[in-house]
Design a binder for these strands. Sequence first.
RNA 1: CGGGGCAUGGCGCAGACUGGUAGCGCGCUUGCAUGGGGUGCAAGAGGUCGUGGGUUCAAAUCCCGCUGCCCCGACCA
Length: 478
Amino acid sequence: MTQALTSPKEDFSRWYNEIVYRADLAAQSKVRGCIILKPYGNDLWEGLKDALNKRFKATGVQNAYFPLFIPMSFLQREAEHVEGFSPELAIVTIGGGKELEEPLVVRPTSETIIGDSFSEWIQSYRDLPLLINQWSNVVRWELRTRPFLRTAEFLWQEGHTAHASHEEAEARTLQMLDVYRDVAVNEAAMPVIPGLKSNSEKFAGALRSYTIEGMMGDGKALQAGTSHDLGQNFAKAFDIQYLDETNQRQFCWTTSWGFSWRVIGGIIMTHGDEKGLRLPPRLAPYQVVVVPIFRNDDERSSVLEAIEAIRRELDDAGIRVHVDMRDYQPGYKFNDWEMRGVPVRLEIGPRDVQNHAAMVARRDIPGKEGKKSYSQDGLVASLKALLDEIQANMLQQAIAFRDSHIQDVTSYDEMKQVVEAGSFARGWWNESAADEARVKEETGATHRCYPLDQPEGSGVSFLTGEPAEKVALFAKAY
RNA sequence: CGGGGCAUGGCGCAGACUGGUAGCGCGCUUGCAUGGGGUGCAAGAGGUCGUGGGUUCAAAUCCCGCUGCCCCGACCA
């Protein structure tokens, strides 16, 4: 008998790891802090990539690819940038058996090497805006790692753009943030809060960093995507200049924005339950899985015949369907696919064949309530509608959870209580590095963002009692 | 880098204090039965006990060194 999964309520961390490995998303790698992305997990990642690529294309962004190795000197050109990334760099000092004249850094992000190219590609205002994205792996030697959420090597997408004006760059920064929000909410059914990062939390070298913050099932925050207005910092460091309409040399305004496989972790922790993973239908590698049930060869052939007809119909309709022909007990398969988060399970046995029906179990509603017999007539339409309903329902469940775990606070004590109870605290606040440090030290929470959606007027800081202009969000974070 | 643990078949662990050449559960293979919620019985395969050295007739076990990993903190998408 297979061992039961740890309940998320017992031990959220352990439950998370079990799902990653047992739901067949990833395998533990022998390399420190790395994971192996398994085919099922890769399909999930490909789904996210498709969703993003579609939107990038719609906003004029083109895909390209830049080298993995970056000369050390490139990083050193932007002071804040190198300072921010130095502690977590992997550096190559030997190549072809010889000590290199200049060490190569395994990219932790590509602003510098792409900036170097941009300086050559951009000559005229006619070359702007330049909108480039790359899908790649990056390496950050983190001290502590967690599958998908923080691995030494991770897969992501990083977009880099150059513009003639700051307004245009800032608009692009916000536009891409909204693309991330759109993908998180409408594809991953993961509600997120778009906002601005505090000075101390912003990207190393950026003027301003924006984020989308999600809330996980244990009330902790997850930064699910970031978009940076780099001002002219990198343009000046890499000499990205153009001649404007009046023949004047001008520095560009650049942006960068990234979205990583960390969101896979976000999906797990947003939707998962005591039975395992729950995948939103739009991203699920298999949307419908069919479990055949039979006792003997006669039943087997009639059941499989009926299943093949249904499978073909669903497949033709563009539904990602999989028939589980493995030689396991049906009960084992039910649990297995539940753990792997498949949104809809079809159970088809002799009784269903006889009744021209199919037993349909939906993953978003656990137990018997989620199980219902459907007629085989119009099954495709029924399942399409059901998948949409599940997608919407998962988002609603997540929104309801999130909204009930954000508390407005008016005093520090209140804020402390709220955060320690595993909720987000939202309150008026004046940015100050000292206050931020105090919050972190005393509660373990960090400033998450200033939500873009700010209330009217002004209020009073929960930390100091002084007048404040912005509302900030604090939470413990992954 | 500070504090604490662990290293034994694919996974989880016992054996160590009191040395005698390795065992359990899960998983895997085969057969029979079973099949609408993790099925049962039986028979199998699989380990030079992280690594280097020492003590001993004999080391998973005792002693010394090394390495790796995990947890708590600092750092981070």
